[in-house]
Design a protein around this nucleic acid. Structure first.
Length: 216
DNA sequence: GGCCAGGTGTAAA
DNA sequence: TTTACACATGGC
């Protein structure tokens, strides 16, 4: 089922080639982006990342050197800027100390480590692990939860409640790293296009969805 | 002008 | 253990 859905989305939208980066420091930039995009549209995040890039701040040591208030203003467009500036800091401090160790750890050990940082929840941790550290894990986001519910794969649209179930469903069927990256990106693309909170089912190209009564 | 976006932490029930 | 709320800008 998952694999079929993946193929379908791939045919519909083509490879997404996530995660988009602009600096020569993808690993750190992706982690920063993962924090900034928490409950925020990527469009708003891009502006913030561009600001950081322009000021040459997409480096752990540099980003720690500017005043917190200045950092907040640079990422203003990404929303929750006071909170996120603090989160960027605490993550970066962790990153400087642990990034090398992270690379050598088993996925789940690395995950536990990331989750111990304040401001890094499951989705953010899993996004970092997959896209920045190239570890095989599937990040479940709001679009995944919504789509899986509408497909009847989970009994309600609750990301928190079924996070691990949905993650494992995917990891069970997709073992290739690139497939995991693409699938997550494709779900977001499809979500932004059709599978919105106010669904565009009439025109949604996913037959498997349209035939379900649940897909409302 | 309201709704929503690639969530997370905390406090109350 | 679940639920409610704070955090906040910008596009449609």
């Amino acid at each position: 089922m998952i694999k079929k859905l993946y193929k379908k989305l791939l045919t519909l939208y083509g490879p997404q080639n996530w995660w988009p980066v602009i600096s020569n420091n993808p690993e750190f930039e992706i982690c920063i982006g993962a924090i900034l995009t928490q409950n925020t549209s990527w469009r708003n995040v891009e502006k913030a990342i561009n600001n950081l890039y322009t000021k040459n701040l997409l480096h752990p040591e540099r980003i720690l050197r500017i005043p917190l208030e200045e950092l907040s203003m640079l990422i203003r467009s990404a929303g929750y800027y006071n909170q996120k500036a603090q989160r960027l800091r605490s993550f970066t401090r962790f990153y400087i100390e642990n990034s090398e160790r992270l690379k050598n750890l088993d996925v789940m050990d690395a995950r536990r480590l990331l989750l111990s940082i304040k401001g890094i929840g499951r989705e953010t941790a899993d996004s970092m692990l997959l896209y920045a550290f190239n570890k095989k894990i599937f990040p479940v986001d709001t679009y995944t939860s919504r789509l899986f519910y509408r497909l009847g794969l989970v009994s309600e649209d609750s990301k928190d409640k079924y996070y691990e179930d949905m993650r494992l469903m995917v990891e069970k069927e997709l073992s290739n790293m690139n497939d995991l990256k693409e699938f997550h990106a494709l779900i977001v693309m499809h979500g932004k296009t059709y599978c919105k909170k106010k669904p565009l089912c009439k025109t949604c190209p996913l037959q498997e969805c349209r035939t379900k009564d649940l897909y409302i």
